[in-house]
Amino acid sequence: MSFYRPFAPLFGAIFCCLLGVGATLGALPLYLRDRHAGDVEIGVVVTAIAVSAVIARPIAGRLADRHGYKPIMIIGVLLCALAGIGYLPADGVVPLTAVRVLHGIGEGTVYTAGATWLVALAPQERRGRFVGLYGICMWLGITLGALVGALVLDAVNFAAVGWFAAVAALGGLALVLVKRGPEHPAGPPRTGLVAGSAVLPGVALSLAAFGYAALAAFVALHLARRDIGHGIAAFNAFGVTYVGVRLFVGNLPDRLGASRVALWSALTEAVGLVLVGAAPNLPVAIAGGLVMGAGLSLLFPALALVVLNRTDPSRHGVALGAFTSFWDIGLAVGGPLAGWIAGLAGYPTIFYVMAGCALGSAALSLAGRRGRAVPAET
């Protein structure tokens, strides 16, 4: 643990900011429903944060490359705190959507600047593990925040949720301020918002994200159609292995090679999706969720490591920002796509099609392995 102590402020800062994001995520649907908002309006408000984060990540990465990671991360944390306060007077779909956009810009900025800062500090032989641990802090922040948000809304009111999000972000600000900024890597000035090294791994990530979106949205409905109760347990099982694998074997991309681990991770996800789609009972569905979690757990850090290894250090921010946006795009596309497939061919077909998408992700990683001799982008 003493080895990781110098990095704790960055892990803590992203946890605090995502704690606020999760709190609003857990409270907003219930709050809007009580105010008689429709399903479409609720969907717009809730997902606005993801749309703005997609746009903010590469921009934040470019700014971090040019001006330093610490000042850009501070700006992101302050935007998250400002968004928390912005929830207080917001009343109605349009004002809340505007606040969600601001929150997404803050979250995307914090993640991208913090991840790039972390990579700059981490030993090169442990970069994949550090990216994975950073993602776990995000996951825990959102998960615990959603629980806290629902409890605070029920016990107090929605304004208290906004205050909680603001205070949590300020806690992240305190952690960032006490951490000394790294030396800024020198490099040639570049103006693009998307690094070419991020495109192929990013598309592979999007294809894999389709499966996660399908599992989250439709596994309970799929199993209920087969008269199998407690279907959400399959999704919970996914979370168990997603976190567990990163904690205990998160160094595999560093040890075995990023492209190799990305290939096998995508294939593992495909197997899990087939198990869920064909599940005749709850134990098989849970097994599918466990297998999926094991696959997706290492896919993101492995592909991120591929991007980092092929990008000049002076462009790591814009590369990671663009790469991470592909995950958000995969979620945004995967959910509606799964719903469209369900309407045409039924729930099981969703998971078989998404297994095919995971195989496509594996094929891209295989192509990346064959082209690994390509020099790093400069």
Rank of each mutant, 00 (worst) to 15 (best):
F3L: 13
F7R: 15
P9I: 14
L10I: 15
C17Y: 03
L19D: 05
L28G: 00
L28P: 00
Y31P: 00
D34P: 00
G38I: 00
E41C: 01
E41D: 09
I55V: 15
A56E: 04
G61P: 01
G61W: 10
L78T: 08
L78M: 13
L79Y: 11
C80Y: 13
C80S: 14
G92T: 00
L96T: 01
G104Q: 02
G106V: 02
E107Q: 05
T112W: 12
T112R: 14
W117D: 14
A122P: 07
P123C: 06
R126P: 03
R127Q: 05
R129T: 03
L133W: 08
Y134E: 08
I136M: 10
L144Y: 09
L147H: 09
V156M: 06
F158K: 00
W163M: 13
A168P: 07
G172A: 02
A186D: 03
P188A: 15
A204F: 01
S206C: 13
A217S: 11
A220N: 02
H222R: 07
H222A: 09
R225G: 10
D227L: 02
I228H: 09
H230K: 14
A233C: 08
V240F: 12
Y242K: 02
V245D: 03
V261S: 11
V261Q: 12
A262W: 05
L267W: 05
T268F: 10
E269W: 03
E269F: 08
V271P: 01
L282M: 04
P283A: 10
G289E: 11
V291T: 12
A294W: 14
A304W: 05
S314D: 09
R315P: 04
H316K: 12
A319P: 01
A319T: 02
A322I: 04
T324I: 07
F326N: 04
A338R: 06
G339A: 11
G339Q: 09
W340R: 13
W340F: 11
I341F: 10
I341T: 03
G343V: 06
G343H: 11
L344N: 01
A345I: 01
A345V: 07
L359K: 01
G360A: 02
S365D: 11
G368Q: 15
R369A: 15
R372P: 00
V374F: 12
